[in-house]
Nucleic acid binder design. Structure first.
Length: 596
RNA sequence: GGUCCCGUAGCUCAGUUGGAUAGAGCAACAGCCUUCUAAGCUGUGGGUCGCGCGUUCGAAUCGCGCCGGGAUCACCA
């Protein structure tokens, strides 16, 4: 790597000129700002105490040394304490020639380590997926792609929350008012059908509470005594007792939910290597807790409940088993963590879960480590911010949610309308057109969500449709499509640019060099995105790349250029940009169209 | 109240381990299609980087204190 070489030789310069030994990491180097001549810039302020000279003199001396000792450096200039290095055209064209036709540029070598288990999605079977789940799913899928590109093996897992009182609420409402309807009989997606009964339950339950309060009960007593809630609790008890009738309905309704989820996942383009069900894992945590109790790492209170005491670690006491011996959410997560460890012996366990559960994961890690689990240190919570609406938070029971299926359908129709308006759909078969609209609509949605730093809350206004111009998915897709069009014309004209001889070119123009430099930085973007577990790094990178290429495309002729050497150089750049856009978008889980 | 996160242009967001004159897009305005796809390109206007103090040659970035917004602190998941 050229950066490492420059840093190494800078250390050498400091040693020879000033007699001091320093480490490469201590040198500040960055890419040169656009307005200034240069490719890399070394900031020399930190070296002044060794040189005991002015910033300008120090930068000048080091620059002169580097120019002599690093063959790739063709010239340099100094502005205050900034040493701007210019690499030779041969370096850049050499980079282009050796990487430009690689389809796997940016993909790092396999590490051969234990896999990373990545959990994402984790839906409840009592309601359909909404915009918050979309953010989760897109982050999870993209992160998996990014980690793979960083040489990791990744196991994508989904933990389905298929049991608990909330499921019983939908079941009860269905038993009372369902009239035996099914997804087949109503033509409704199963998850939506179930969600309807969940909302209905809440409505009727609230009505009961109101009635009871009018009869003089406190709100708390009313919400505890309302017949609907006690009936739902009874169903939960029956479920845990494996009551045949309840189990049958539970299986049927969960089946409807899974069919619905499958459709949503398929359309969204996400998938999983393994699915865990809480109904199959919720008992496992108990064993762990009992073990911990035996080795006196946990404490049992007088009523029989079991707790982890985390007060010496700045947290509170945390309940792990109720007095009646049943387990809570934390207990389940202890169990699934253990199970995953046994299944894969992973090098890391990543959970893509909203930031509302930060505390939960702090506790989870501490309890695991209290239980002596060495893998506690490998648990990483990828905590992402909420998607906020102009009116505030989404609440599924109050109907203020942006439904995942509706949103995707809306993106599809917007894409269709816009494409038709631009007159670009006329030559396509209906099938190809639908495919294109799907690619563009989903591209807009996915990019809109992934370009934002995961840890930040983000705003979504349903009244304003997601843009297709500017810093958007379709902008990048369009750049790609235009590149493909140009390349196929070039191929028809008989050009061959796959194995170009690029030495002896006329000197690179600024726009040519800038786009090559941008391509050069892709490796670093992939590595940074992986290190920070942040798809937005890739999104921002690919936008800059597309933006830079569009300038290039606008200003410089490719096929109409008279100098054949230039034509080949620009085709080579064009192809390379296309490949890198495609790879970047793949890391985001976004498709790229051959034409649009 | 305790803990954690966030605060950058009218709006949505970028801004590398602290570096040069804080950047994009949208919206507004003005240009560019007889020339490789105008979902594009170029230009103009728009900023007390929430406020203050500190560390530093240098702070949007690090530390402390305020102000504002959010999350969480369940025998819910």
């Amino acid at each position: 790597m050229i950066e490492e070489k420059i840093l190494r030789m800078t250390c050498e310069a400091v040693q020879q000129l000033y007699g001091q030994v320093i480490k490469p990491e201590s040198i500040g180097m960055e890419t040169t700002k656009k307005e200034i001549t240069g490719d890399f810039t070394i900031v020399v302020f930190s070296l002044l105490k060794m040189s005991r000279k002015s910033p300008e003199a120090t930068a000048g001396e080091i620059g002169a040394f580097l120019k002599v000792n690093v063959s790739e450096i063709s010239e340099f200039n100094v502005i205050k304490g900034f040493l701007n290095l210019v690499l030779s055209d041969d370096f850049w064209t050499g980079f282009l020639a050796s990487n430009g036709s690689r389809a796997d540029f940016g993909i790092q070598e396999k590490r051969g380590e234990a896999p990373i288990v990545l959990e994402y999605s984790s839906p409840n079977t009592n309601k359909p997926l909404h915009l918050g789940h979309i953010r989760n799913n897109l982050l999870g899928y993209s992160l998996a792609e990014i980690l793979k590109a960083n040489g990791h093996e990744v196991v994508k897992v989904n933990l389905v929350n298929d049991r608990g009182i909330h499921i019983c609420k939908s079941m009860l409402a269905y038993m009372k008012w369902g009239n035996g309807e099914t997804p087949e009989s109503t033509g409704e997606k199963g998850d939506h059908l179930i969600g309807r009964y969940y909302v209905l339950f809440d409505k009727e339950y609230k009505a009961e509470i109101r009635d009871l309060m009018e009869k003089g009960l406190s709100e708390e007593a009313a919400s505890r005594q309302a017949p609907l809630i006690t009936e739902a609790q009874e169903i939960l008890r029956k479920w845990e007792a494996k009551d045949a009738e309840v189990l049958q309905l539970w299986k049927t309704m969960n089946g409807w939910a899974y069919d619905g989820f499958d459709l949503t996942y398929r359309r969204l383009g996400v998938d999983f290597d393994k699915i865990y069900y809480e109904s199959e894992t919720y008992l496992l945590g108990k064993e762990l807790v009992m073990e911990g109790l035996g080795s006196e790492r946990l404490v049992r209170k007088d009523d029989g409940s079991v707790w982890a005491d985390l007060r010496d670690e700045g947290l509170d006491e945390k309940l792990l088993l109720r007095a009646d011996g049943t387990s809570v959410y934390m207990t389940q997560d202890l169990g699934t963590a253990q199970l995953r460890y046994e299944d894969y012996h992973p090098s890391a366990m990543i959970y893509v879960v909203g930031n509302e559960q930060n505390y939960h994961f702090d506790v989870l890690k501490k309890v695991l480590s209290k239980l002596g689990k060495t893998f506690a240190g490998h648990v990483y919570h990828l905590s992402y911010g909420m998607v906020e609406l102009p009116l505030g938070k989404m609440k599924s029971r109050e109907g203020t949610v942006v439904d995942a299926d509706d949103l995707m359908e809306e993106m599809f129709s917007t894409a269709a309308a816009m494409t038709r308006e631009l007159g670009k759909a006329s030559e396509l078969s209906e099938e190809d057109a639908d495919k294109l609209f799907n690619t563009i609509g989903l591209g807009a949605l996915k990019y809109f969500i992934l370009k934002v730093d995961p840890k930040k809350n983000m705003m979504f206004d349903p009244a304003e449709s997601i843009d297709f111009n500017g810093n958007t998915g379709p902008f990048i897709q369009y750049t790609y499509a235009r590149i493909q069009s140009l390349l196929s014309k070039a191929a028809l004209a008989g050009y061959q640019w796959e194995q170009p001889v690029l030495s002896g070119q006329p000197s690179l123009l600024l726009l040519e060099k800038e786009i090559i430099k941008r391509l050069f930085l892709f490796d670093e973007a992939v590595i940074q995105a992986g290190r920070e577990m942040n798809p937005a790094v890739i999104a921002n990178y690919v936008y800059d790349l597309a933006k830079g290429y569009n300038q290039f495309y606008q200003e410089l002729p490719v096929l109409k250029e008279e100098d054949t050497a230039k034509v080949l150089l620009r085709l080579c750049i064009t192809d390379f940009v296309g490949k890198t856009i495609k790879t970047s978008m793949k890391l985001l889980g976004i498709m790229v169209p051959p034409r649009m």
